[in-house]
Write a protein that binds this DNA or RNA. Sequence first.
DNA 1: TATATAAATACAAATAACGTATATTTCATA
DNA 2: TATGAAATATACGTTATTTGTATTTATATA
Lengths: 196, 196
Amino acid sequence: MEKQSGKFEAIAAAAKSLFWKHGIRRVSIEEICHDAGVSKMTCYKYFSNKTAIAKYLIEEMFESGIKAYKEIYHSDISYEEKVKKMLDLKMSNAHEMSQELLDDIYKNQDEELSETIETIKKRMIGIYLDDIREAQKIGEIRNDVKPEFMLYFLNNLTEMLTDQRLVSIYSNPQQMISEVMTFFFYGIMPRKNGEK
Amino acid sequence: MEKQSGKFEAIAAAAKSLFWKHGIRRVSIEEICHDAGVSKMTCYKYFSNKTAIAKYLIEEMFESGIKAYKEIYHSDISYEEKVKKMLDLKMSNAHEMSQELLDDIYKNQDEELSETIETIKKRMIGIYLDDIREAQKIGEIRNDVKPEFMLYFLNNLTEMLTDQRLVSIYSNPQQMISEVMTFFFYGIMPRKNGEK
DNA sequence: TATATAAATACAAATAACGTATATTTCATA
DNA sequence: TATGAAATATACGTTATTTGTATTTATATA
C-alpha cells in the first residue's frame, strides 16, 4: 500500500482552519475539499461525513494536549515549576479551541461530537485528579483540600489568565502567572520566616 | 410616526457583527434576527433581503470613511500632518472590512454588492485625485508626478503599514508611520541645508 | 376598549448541501 | 506505448436549510 500523499493531512488542515474560524455548522464539505485541493470523492475515502472530520480533529487536539501535560507532569522539576509550565501551556493554547466553536457544537446538538468531547474531558479530569492525589500523598501539596476543588480552582485560574481585565493589570503575562501562582500556592498570608 | 425603537439599529449591528466575522454567505437572516432580538417579519419591514442589509452597512462604512477623510483634508494643518493623520486613520480601520469579507462578496458574484463597492470606490478615487491635483496646484506637493501614481503609492503604503513583516521592524507604529512618511515626502536623498 | 405594532407560527418555493454513481483524466509502471 | 490504479470532474436524486410571505397570537398605547 502506498503512503498517503498528504491528502488526508490536507483535508484535516483545511477543515481545522475553517472549523476553528467559523464553527462546524457554517462550513460545508465541498468547501473543505476545495480548500484542501481535493475532490469530494477523495474526502469521502477518508471520512464518512463532516462530523467524522470534526471528531478526528477534536480528538487529535485533546490527545496532543494530554501528551503535553504528561510530559510536563513527569518531568524532573518542582511541583511549583510544573504548575507554572502548565499555566504557560494553557495560556498559549487559549485560542486552540474557541468557546465559539464549543458553543457551536453543543448548540447544534451534534450528539456524537458532544459525547466525544465529554468522554475526553472525563478522561482528562481523571488523569488530573489522580495526579493531584498522588502529589498529596507524597506531600508535594497539602492534603486538607479536596482534589476536585483544586481542579475546579485551576480551571478558574486558566480562565482568569485569559481575561483581558486581569491581563491589562500586568505589564507582562509572566509576571501575572507568577503572581497568580504565588497566591495559589501560598494564599494571602505573608510568608513566615524560613518559608521559601 | 413613532421613532424607531432601535430595532433597525439592532438589526444593523447584529448583521455587521456576523458579516464581518463570517462573511455574508455564511450568515442567514434568521440568525441576524435572533441576534438582534427581532422577529423575521420586523426585519423584512426594514430590509427587503440580506443583500440590502449588507449594502446598507457597506455604504454606511464608506460614507463614514469619506467623512473622516474630508474632515482631515479640510482641517487647518500642514499637508504632511494631513497625510500622517490619514495613515493613522487607515491603520486603525485596517480591519474595518476584512479582505476575507471582500473576497466573499466578489467570489459569490453578488453583482449588486460588488457594484455598490465599485461605485463608492470610484467616488473615493475621484475625491482623492481632485485633492491631490489641488495640492499640486497650490504647490503643497511636487507636480512632476502623476496623481494616479501618488494614489497608487499611497494605497501601497497603507498595505505596508498593516504588513506584520514591516510592523515587527519597528518598536511602535508611530515610528513606522513617521519613517515611511519621511520617505514618501522626501525620498531617500539626504536633506539639503535649509530643508525642513 | 379599540387600534396599531411586533412576535410567533406555519408554509410553499427556492436554494444549498449531502452522499453516491459514473465517466474522464492523470500518471506511474509494465 | 499500453495498462491499470487512483484522483478528479460531472451529474444526480435526496435531504436539509433558507427564504419570503401569510396568518395568528400577544403586547402595548391612545
